[in-house]
Nucleic acid binder design. Structure first.
Lengths: 377, 377
DNA sequence: CTGAAAGCGCTTACAG
DNA sequence: CTGAAAGCGCTTACAG
């Protein structure tokens, strides 16, 4: 089929079927080379932005690309170079902590779009013993440029081992365990939880309840640790009775809140490991007829959209999602696992109306907000 | 680096460097054919479950596959057959209505995983005039087996035209406009909103407020239509003053609630087009010191997790997410756009504590729940 | 029931 | 600065 025929056909798409005409096949690198009067090698250089092509030639090729609406076939490219422009994003069930995962995904999507990559999302079950097989089946088959692990997958040794075996660069978000030859991206969850606890202590709280997250989440472990460190530093004895367990869902947060508020001597503040659970605590406080923050201060973690959507709005800890996604992306693309290590991005305590000194009414000041938008920002 | 050197390196990954050993290159179809003593054609048949291979041969090939941990390279497969095992999921920014989109994505992930497909998620901006180019760059390049359009992308003509041009099967979720040669999957939003309105009317409500969703969302249009039809059928005059606008976010729901509750003669019930906005309405009602449902009934739509996570829990309309994903998946895979048309899946009104007859206390009965889980179910 | 050969559309040494 | 050729790992008519 000649180039002109092809061009012709592409145009016929909206008209009724015409016979005797070959079907519009997308233009290939050969078509471009022919139209530009160069070899395919030269075209390849141009579309890959490689040097050593004269300006005039580059220009001519670009025009041909434009004329033919040529788009290099990613499959062929990947096959020939054994490196695809695809990143794998592996996540567990989204039920728990879904806000964080969804925001990371969105931010990664933006990065990929800007840089010409694509994101393959895969659902992997942390507890599946076949996890290694599943990983190989995907990674080996598709020469993924890298794999991003969302918690709690960041801490599944079998998964990481399988991934390392395939030589795929790995980025783990918010891991709780150490691992060699991988890139870790998170905030310092321990320091952040310590900061939040210190803030509550600074307000005058002494009996501070804590709602733990699921301990197979590394970040949940670190946040609990930060809480304890802050108490210790302030000379407040740790009291297991002031701790309750949740799995990062609203419902378990509510149960935990009921448990803590049923104590003979109830806490004056409750710090939940994430915003969903903090929302549950606030719901529980209604049943005890407690005013927030006069009778009970509540703090969350993550700066999820829900933390904004309550009344009073929730004091929480902001994670710089977009920056984390950007760090992960470039670490995986550019450094190709040579620069394994940890990226600790800065967190920020966001004070809103749900916390105050014991017995005091709250102040909910919009100016306290992080200036960055919640999503994509 | 020579091939043998390369092979060498991979093998040594966990052990100290060994010399003289070829590197573990992933097994190819040739390796399998050699080990099984057959041609690659036969191997191809076996791995693709094609007929006309004797049982004994199939057995031998399968063993070789197992022994070598062979996984067919998806890139090569896609290139050779010009059909990949990848589906594209296109969504707009996730801010509004993100719950629905996230749940669809999760359900599609499960479908893909079960059926050996992969999901490429792409962020497309409905208002981007270059939308056609963006689509081509992805679809044409990767021979996607099909593309799933999430609202509001379901109603972006330029996008759909570009997609049709590439001959890719298209599934639209919850579209508001008609389109030929595509597969549509949704519930009957109009009938569902009518059912909900009828339910409120049946409770004795006459002044029923309505919070519209963004009208570039087809489902928002249909839900508004259903509300009006129900009023008309009951002989209740439509009153634009009882309507307010939102964009499916909590915040706009709260504003809409404030607007409607500030009316001289305020509504006894408010039906919001989605759960997030209904939650906003409930928050607004607090500021007016209204008890729910005694002073105000509130209904939402979608049966999002948030509808469960409020007190009282929200009366809403359940969408069968998993069934929608399944219908979409098989429509795209099997029917390959030959059977274009609409799949209307059944909705279900879920009555909870936020609605009651005017002046009456609510009943929140767990048994009213749809027995299906929220996610994946 | 099975094989040998061509081809999918690129990239990549190797030459010049 | 550019070209001709081999090869990535599959599928698919075409033969038998």
């Amino acid at each position: 089929m000649s180039v002109s025929e092809k061009i012709d056909n592409a145009e016929t798409e909206d008209r009724p079927e015409e016979e005797g005409r070959p079907r519009p096949r997308p233009a290939t690198i050969y078509d471009v080379a022919e139209l530009a009067g160069v070899s395919i090698k030269t075209v390849s250089k141009v579309i890959n932005n490689l040097p050593q092509v004269s300006y005039a030639t580059r220009q001519r090729v670009s025009e041909a690309v434009e004329t033919l609406s040529f788009r290099p076939n990613q499959l062929a490219r990947g096959l020939a170079s054994s490196r695809s422009f695809m990143l794998g994003l592996f996540c567990d069930a989204p039920a728990a902590g879904s806000g964080y995962a969804a925001r990371i995904q969105m931010a990664m999507l933006t990065m990929c779009h800007n840089e010409g990559y694509h994101l393959i999302v895969e659902c992997v079950h942390a507890t599946n013993p076949q996890v290694g097989r599943q990983v190989n089946a995907l990674v080996a088959q598709s020469s993924l440029a890298g794999v991003l692990l969302m918690p709690p997958l960041s801490d599944v040794p079998a998964l990481i081992a399988a991934l390392k075996h395939t030589k795929t660069p790995i980025v783990r978000f918010s891991p709780g365990t150490a691992e060699s030859d991988v890139i870790d991206v998170d905030i310092d969850n321990c320091a952040a939880a310590r900061d939040m606890t210190n803030y509550l202590i600074g307000l005058g709280h002494r009996r501070i309840g804590f709602v733990r997250g699921p301990l197979y989440h590394g970040d949940a472990v670190m946040r609990f640790e930060g809480y304890r460190l802050a108490l210790a530093a302030a000379g407040i004895a740790f009291d297991e009775d002031l701790c309750a367990d949740g799995d990062y869902t609203y419902k378990t947060g509510m149960r935990a809140g009921e448990q803590l508020l049923s104590l003979p001597e109830r806490p004056s503040a409750i710090f939940a490991s994430n915003d969903d659970m903090a929302a549950g605590v606030m719901a529980a406080s209604l049943r005890f007829n407690l005013r927030i923050p006069q009778d009970l201060s509540v703090a969350g973690f993550d700066n999820e959209i829900i933390s904004h959507a309550m009344s009073p709005r929730l004091t929480t800890c902001h994670q710089p999602i977009a920056e984390m996604a950007e760090a992960a992306f470039f670490a995986i693309i550019r450094q190709n696992k040579k620069h394994a290590g940890t990226f600790h991005l800065p967190h920020k305590i966001v004070v809103r109306g749900s916390t105050a000194a014991p017995g005091m009414a709250g102040v909910d000041n919009d100016d306290n907000e992080a200036p960055t938008p919640f999503f994509n920002g």
